[in-house]
Every structure is written in C-alpha cells, then in structure tokens.
C-alpha cells in the first residue's frame, strides 16, 4: 500500500471524533449506569448482584480498561489512514 500524504487536519478531526465518542461511553458506564440510572438498572441482575450496583463497583472499571485499549487500537488506525508517523 502506498504511504498516504500526511494530513494533520484530518488526523486531528478524526482524533477528536474518536475522543468524544469514547468519553460518551466512559460517562454512560460510570456516571450513567453506576449513578444516574442505577436504580432503574437494579431491576436486572448479573449473577447475584443488582446490575446498577455491579456497574458502580465492578463493571465501570472493566469498561474503562476496554476503552483505553480500544483508543490505542483506533488511534493506530487513524494514524495509518492520515499518514501520521507515530
């Protein structure tokens, strides 16, 4: 594959879109599931734990870990696409 011409503007716009998207998930998993919608989610259960409570004490942390690795992977793609040498 030929190396694309570096496009810093496109790269930064794509980075911002990705960042906003991932932060939305970050917000929903912690402040959302663990705090704001906790009572509603508690009608469901994961194993023996109410779901909202579980998100606040376990689930949110797993989502955080996943988000950072997804970010690393997606940023590598964006860098390739816009010809940025990381």
């Amino acid at each position: 594959m030929p190396k694309p011409t570096p496009d810093p503007r496109g790269y930064w716009a794509a980075t911002l879109r990705l960042t906003v998207g991932l932060l939305l998930v970050w917000f929903l998993a912690s402040y959302g599931a663990g705090i704001l919608f906790r009572d509603w989610l508690d009608q469901f259960a994961i194993g023996g734990a109410p779901l909202g409570f579980w998100f606040a004490q376990q689930g949110a942390i797993y989502v955080f870990v996943a988000l950072i690795f997804i970010y690393c992977w997606a940023m590598a793609r964006i860098e390739r696409k816009y010809g940025i040498e990381a």
């Binding site: 991932l22 932060l23 606040a56 949110a60 955080f64 988000l67 970010y71």
Partner: peptide, 14 residues
C-alpha cells in the same frame, strides 16, 4: 472505585 480508575481514561485520551 470509579473515581480512582476512571481518571485513567481521561489521562489516556486527554
């Protein structure tokens, strides 16, 4: 639990 782990997402992304 959320506060002391969620900050790492901010660190990594921002």
């Amino acid at each position: 639990l959320m506060g002391w782990t969620g900050g790492y997402v901010l660190l990594a992304l921002l």
